[in-house]
Each structure stands twice: as C-alpha cells, then as structure tokens.
Design a protein around this nucleic acid. Structure first.
Lengths: 351, 351
DNA sequence: ATCACTCGTGGGAGCGCTCCCACACTACCT
DNA sequence: AGGTAGTGTGGGAGCGCTCCCACGAGTGAT
C-alpha cells in the first residue's frame, strides 16, 4: 500500500475482500452470496451473511458498475419543463406506478427533465455516457429526436404513447380507440343522436385513434358519417372554445360533444353556457383523461379514465425485460412489445 | 486479453487509452485535459481535444467514480410521500432553484422520496453505499433521524429549515423572525392595535421564530404583552379554525390576525366570516408563505413571501462548498454555515 | 477400483479511470 | 560552468468489484 496516502485501509468502508477474510472464504464466494447465486452451500452462505452483517458491508456501486458494465439505474425522461410536470396529475400518477413497480428491485430511478435546449444537450451527454441501463420516455412529440437517439445508442427504452402505429420502440398505451368508442356508445345509449367530436392534436397518434374510435362507434350504430360534426382541437382550453363555437355555428342542432381531453371539454362547456345551452339537458358533454378538472367541473364531467398508474407499472415491466434480454447478446428482432391497457368510462352528471 | 469473450475491444465506447493513442500522448495527459488541469501545454490540449471529438469519447462515470471515490451526484431527499410533493408549490419552486444552480455543473441531481418506512430503509441503504456526494434535505421534522444518520456517515448535507438554533448541519432558511415582524409592523402601520397571532406547529423551529418576531414587533411599538392574543395552531386549516374561534371567544375586540401559514389563514377567515366579521374592515388578516391559496382567497390574502427558489440555489452553493471542502481531509469544525434569506411582504386586500 | 460428472469454491485478470511519482527538458540563478 | 527550480509529460499502481477458469471433493455408473 504505497502512495494514495489518506485513502488507507483503516476506518473506511469494508470491501468484499475484507468480508471474505472475515468469513474465511474467497472473494468469489462472497460475491456469489451478495448476488444471490444458488451455487453456494447453506453453511457458507450463512457464514458470509454473518460477516456482512458484522462489518456492515455495503457493495460499492461504482466498482460493480465498472466490472459488470451496468448501472442498476433507469431514467424517467420528461421532455417538458418542470412546471408542466408538476401541473399535470398525469406525471405524478405515472411516477407512482413506476415507483411502486420498482420498489422490489435494486434499480434506482432518476427523474430527468429535458425541457430546454440546454437540458436536452445535457441529457444527450448523459445518455451517451450510458449512465443508465434503460430509459422511460413519457409525453414525446412525434418529431422528437430522442427516441431515435436511444435506438442508436442501443439503450433499452420504453415509450408511453407510441408515436405511430409503426412505433419501433417498446411502448405502453391506453386503448384510445376503445376509450373513444365507449364514450360515444355511452352517449348513444343516453339517446343522443348528433354527437360531435373535438379532437386532440392530430399529430399525436393517440388523438387520431380517438377519432377512429368515435367514427367506428357511430358507424356501428348505423349513423351516416358526418364530417361537419368533427372539429380539430389541440388539447387546450382555448382550442376547445374555438372548436365548440365553430361546431355550434355549423350544427346548432348537436346534442352531445365528445371532447379530446378534459381541458378541451372545459373550453367547450364555457362556449355552450354562453350560447345558453344547458349541460346535460341540451347538450351532453364527455371528456378524456378523468383529471381533477373533470371532478371539479360544474356539472361534474363524464370522462374516460386512463389507468396511468398501471401504465407506469407496465412500462417498468417492459423495460426490465428489455434490459434483461439485452444483457446476453440480444436477439435483435423487431418483435418489440406494445402493451395496450383498457380505459374506463367514469360517468358523471354532464351526460 | 484472455477471457471476457464478448466484451472485446472492437466497437465499444472509446476509452481514455484509445484517445491517448490517437492523440499521440500518454493516458495521464488525456486525463488532465478532460479534467481541465492547467498543467498541459496548449498544443497538447488541442491535439487531445481533437482526438476526443473524432472518437466521440465520453468518460466512463463508473470508472471515474471508482478511482476518484466520488459520484458527481447529489440527492434531494423529500421525507414525504410523492403526493404531498406534487401538491405543494414549495417543492417545485425549490426544485427549480436547485436545478438552475446545478446546471452549470457536472453534478447530477437525484430526487428521492422517503415517505414510507420501506422507502426510508431503501434510502438508508442508498446513503450507506455512498451513492451520492451530498444530500439536500427539505421539510424535515424535528425528530427525524435522517440528519444524524448523514452526520454519522460523514456525508455532506444541507438542510432547509434548521431544526433548532443549534442546528449542526449546514442550513438555509428564510428570515422567519423578520418576516413575522414585517407582517405585524404592516398591520400596526394600518392602524391595527389588537393583533392576534395563530402560531404554526411549535415543534417547528421556524414557527417559534415567527412568534418571536411577532412579539418583538409589538414590544418595540410599545404594546404590552398580551398572551391572550396568541393561540397555537399547527399549519392546518382545521387548526386555523379552532384557534380563531378560541381567539374570538377570548378577545372579541381583536382587529387583526397574523396567521402562521396561508392555510391557517384560510381556516381563520372562515370562522371570521361566520362570526360576521368582514375582512379587512373589521379584522385584517395576514398569512405566511404567499402560496397559491393566498392569491385566490376572497379577499386576496396579504402574505409573507419566502424566496424559495433562491433558497434552493443557496442550498446548492452550500452543499457544493461542503463537498469541495471535504475532499482534502476536512477541517472538522463546527463553523458550519447557516444562511438566512430575507422575506418579502406581499400586500393584498385582506389587510 | 476407475472414470465421468457435478458441485462448491478460490483467486487471477480485467473493467477504465485517477493519482502520483519519476523523468525529461527548459529556464534562470549563482 | 554547475546547480536549482520549475513545467509538461508518461505510465505504474490501485480503486472494489464481476467473470470465469481451474481445482478438489463427493457421487454414482461402469
């Protein structure tokens, strides 16, 4: 032990080697016990565990990462500024699911915001340095370069909300098509006949699927297609107001509106009120997301709930599987997994 | 290069050694350039930088952590369940300050929730493994064992809101004493004479300091101490209601209330209303925190603003200094830093 | 009794870096 | 001229772990 003055052996953290000496076994054996290998006799295992407890041994993560070429950490990347993250319950629910699914694992979760350009550059560095074993991507826009960067770096990744039907990354999504269908079928069952739809941003795949579901439900019920009842929105309140006004102008006789999001529905509600239409008597209103705003609206808004927490859990499952698969020379197939979870219609007074 | 089959030299990420070969220099020299040491000639530095760029070299964090015995990461530990974290703007503001101050650093920020017992045990493991160079502690209760654990592990830490006047950890706080003073002085200047105080939880040091400030302001204005005007609350709305009712019973002639928090003020307001007192005509009301609730109250609530974002920045400054100090055998003194930031009274219609 | 396994175990080599010592080489003094 | 500081540089040793090869001891078939 020459040089490296202050870093001496004395009071520092115990190493594998020291545990091995204490237990009277070899380094390899201790490593096997620590990592839960079955190839250790019960007696030896007990001796090692005792030594670990006595010495208060805790593995050195850096050394392990270096030797094993893995980090035991995954990142949840949010390509939004912090503010939006905190504002939307979506993220906190997602985080809850992710956290709970991860809690029986040794994996560490990192939360990374990449809203600004600067943050994105940092993130790129971070990923290039392979500081995480895998990445969870939420709320990604269609033209985001992030997913491709991840593919290129061969970092396992799971995306919530595929960018298209041909999403190349593993993905978890809720059943936008089915959710929209159920909303429209609900309105039909309530006797509504002229059901309008304010869409979400149509460059978001999920929003397109909702339009598809809306159309299918009407078609299957024997209604003729009526393009006049569809107006593009963008998930915002302002967009909802604009679209609602336009719909009322075109089809003043409409008796129901299925909005692409709760926020959109809030905008629509405002315009309906100003136009003197009562909800739900004159016009029934259904939203999407079942966010807090739906519960607090006046009247409370019927909405399609997505199982966000469960989606978070599913994302972790997929990601851990991908990481495990990749460890031994991966089977580079395009058989990536796409998980779709069912939605649930939450009926309230607005319909 | 025997064994370690698949891990061969071929297409993997470039190493320091390879950069050195490319640049025609030694390993040590590349390391010096990477770490910004001044002891490198300009010509050599340029050559190394070129090689780094050509090869797309990114340092291996694990190797660096192992060799240098540091992680370049710090943790923001929130001893609360996620839900509260997301509910209170306090945390998101804090996070913003922390993030901005950290962004010119190589340091990585980890967000760790330790609300449940299980999470706390994980955290203990995590800290014992020294997976971070330092810890930021927010919203710690007086009897929390976490701070002491950190001291024992000799992990640099900064706490927001000291646990007592004798806080042993470095800490950042807002000027609770001064904030309370300014609130009371404001009420005095508005001609109020019988100013009551609903305290916060008195096992929180900051709440005690607010009481001290309240007392001092009255004393300095020549008012006699009147214990009947002080009632203990607990930062909650319900506590505010209870305390307000009690105060009204004891001193129906009071003409102002300084509440320990905005939420407490909201509770007090309710009781005042029910008692037929108008705000601010009969009773002026001042809160603390300047949270969203203050802006949205009817009437808008005058409140003491704490510079939370700035506090986050200050915490990082302190922590980075502690980490830097500790690298070379630390000067184990009790000269820890305590930073106190000024508050600001935000005047609104309630006073 | 011999061979062929299997099982549990010890320990060498190596992961990619930082730290530091040693070694030129160049100035600048006496 | 010889000494004395610097300055820039190369590379050995070591961080604590995992991976894997080798080896002894036990077990059962031949």
């Amino acid at each position: 032990m020459v040089g490296h003055g202050a870093r001496g052996r004395s009071g520092g953290r115990p190493t594998l080697e020291e545990v091995a000496a204490r237990a009277g076994v070899g380094r390899g054996t201790v490593s096997r016990v620590i990592n839960g290998s079955p190839r250790v006799s019960d007696a030896t295992r007990a001796a090692v565990e005792a030594a670990v407890a006595e010495l208060g041994y805790v593995p050195n993560t850096a050394a392990r990462a270096l030797a094993a070429n893995r980090t035991d950490a995954i990142a949840l990347v949010v390509p939004e500024p912090e503010t939006r993250f905190f504002a939307e319950p979506y993220f906190s629910d997602m985080l809850k699911g992710v956290g709970s699914e991860l809690s029986d694992t040794e994996m560490q979760l990192l939360l990374i915001f990449a809203g600004s350009d600067r943050e994105r550059r940092r993130l790129a560095q971070y990923l290039a340095a392979h500081r995480v074993d895998g990445v969870l991507l939420v709320s990604v826009h269609a033209d985001d370069p992030l997913p491709d960067m991840l593919s290129q770096l061969e970092i396992p990744a799971v995306i919530s909300g595929p960018r298209s039907a041909a999403e190349s990354l593993a993905s978890v999504d809720s059943d936008n098509y089915g959710g929209a269908r159920s909303a429209v079928e609900h309105l039909l069952s309530r006797g509504r006949r002229r059901i309008a739809h304010i869409t979400g941003r149509l460059d978001v795949y999920g929003a397109q699927r909702r339009v598809d579901g809306y159309r299918a439900a009407l078609r299957d019920a024997g209604h003729a297609e009526d393009e006049q009842l569809i107006e593009a929105g963008d998930f915002t309140e302002e967009g909802g107001r604009r679209a609602m006004a336009e719909l009322l102008r075109r089809r003043p006789d409409l008796d129901a509106v299925f909005a692409g999001s709760d926020v959109t529905a809030a905008g629509a509600r405002q315009v309906l009120r100003e136009a003197g239409r009562s909800i739900p008597d004159d016009v029934a209103l259904v939203g999407y997301d079942d966010s807090a705003i739906a519960r607090h609206m006046e009247p409370p808004l019927t909405s399609v709930r997505q199982p966000i927490e469960e989606m978070g859990r599913a994302m972790i499952d997929l990601l851990l599987a991908e990481i495990a698969d990749r460890r031994p020379a991966a089977s580079r197939g395009l058989d990536r997994h796409q998980v779709v979870l069912a939605t649930e219609l939450v009926e309230r007074a607005s319909s």
